[in-house]
Nucleic acid binder design. Structure first.
Lengths: 233, 233
DNA sequence: ACCATTAGTGTATTTTTTACACTTTTTGTG
DNA sequence: CACAAAAAGTGTAAAAAATACACTAATGGT
């Protein structure tokens, strides 16, 4: 035991970790991806996927690594959320957590996940279990951030497939903002931004009028924001 | 030297520090409070006031301590900005910095500062010296945050005296947003929010029509936001 | 054939934002 | 003491944006 401890410093240091709040959308409601803890403390409790920051990686890189290694997702939208530093947030010793929030397309995720990842499960945002550590607090902040951000940055698209219908997009906004939006006004607004392109493809095998698919036009969005024009829904 | 190093861990840990971006306003333009470094690295260069996080304090508390000890300001608006974790951001060893931004009433500050604080100076935002470490990057982000935040949260008031005229408030907004605002429209808008109260006091000894003093009505603001109504300028 | 279901569309009203100019008050100066 | 200088304070009309609202079109299932 003593032998293991080999990194020595002049002053005490907190451990530094990263925790990830991972949002997904299944067409109806927002979900959160949680992992079951394998060890004490909080063994068998649900928690945000997280881990300690390595000496050769930034916290951003650490978050990406956790997303990939622990839950099998990569190339997704990740953004730093907040740093939590309450001295007693981990019962073992002091751990400061730089938290991140990620937006994942649930369908893509289901293809990648599985292998040597942790036991992970999607939970309804409205029906979360009690979480380990201060993770409920972190989730709360992430939800606020997502709500705030979604109306002035096109991050919502990260939660959908590359092609999507306007109704799907509207459902997503309604789920995030917890409100209902008038269909005509929504379409008017979102199309007027000029950041969507209609594809030459409709839904198939639906027992109703098929909807056109759209995709997010990243180039148009970049031009828009570079000109200093704010996106707002 | 060896004797000094007495804190030992199983895995290596970055040092954890806090840096503060402190904004002030003098009626005309926005300023930033910088301290001169007393030691290497970057000895005698200008830098953000900062320091290492103690084991018994949160990063918030650390930021407050730095504001108080190093530059002599207290009871000011402080908010976490972002955590910077590039592995090479400090040439000595790995230091992760949780940065904060603070808004200070320059007049109040001038009363408190001085004693056993560091050499500190206000700099024009438009005319900053080259800064130590990655502090320029931190400042850039703080400016963006301030600009973004000022139009939907009444943080601007923190930079003014408790009583202020509408013209002073407008100048502040113009300085932060780097734009000019129509006087009548500004007054209409800001008064319609119902978060200002007119005092029964005017300016004195000014060679023009004296302006009424106003103060920020925290109670009204709280009620407003608790009802879920967004403040926006 | 028809039923159920959701896609897709336009207009009128209200609210918000913008643009714009003159009078009032006070001090300092000649 | 008249007048100049300086910024305070004030209203309205026009334009733009947000909102409220209801029917027809297309498709697969029964």
């Amino acid at each position: 035991m003593k032998d293991k401890k080999k990194y020595t410093y002049e002053y005490p240091r907190p451990a530094l970790a990263t925790d990830c709040v991972i949002f997904g959308f299944d067409g109806g409601s927002l979900k959160l991806l949680l992992t079951e803890r394998e060890k004490e403390p909080f063994k068998n409790k649900w928690a945000l996927p997280g881990g300690f920051v390595h000496m050769d990686e930034t916290t951003d890189e650490c978050a990406e690594r956790i997303l990939k290694e622990k839950v099998g997702v990569k190339n997704v939208f990740v953004e730093q959320l907040y740093t939590f530093s309450e001295t007693d947030r981990d019962p073992r010793e002091r751990v400061v957590s730089v938290s991140y929030f990620a937006l994942v397309n649930k369908h893509q995720y289901e293809l990648v996940a599985g292998r040597d990842t942790l036991k992970a499960e999607w939970f309804e945002l409205a029906d979360l279990p009690k979480l380990a550590f201060d993770h409920s607090k972190i989730v709360k902040m992430a939800i606020l951030r997502l709500k705030g951000k979604v109306s002035y940055q096109p991050i919502g698209f990260e939660l959908l497939n590359e092609k999507f219908t306007l109704s799907q997009l509207q459902s997503l906004y309604e789920a995030i903002l917890e409100t209902s939006i008038d269909k005509r006004n929504f379409r008017k607004k979102i199309l007027s931004l000029g950041i969507l392109k209609v594809l030459e493809e409709k839904e198939k095998n639906v027992a109703r009028k098929a909807a056109w698919y759209y995709s997010f036009d990243k180039k148009a969005y970049k031009e828009l924001t570079q000109k200093g024009i704010y996106f707002e829904i």
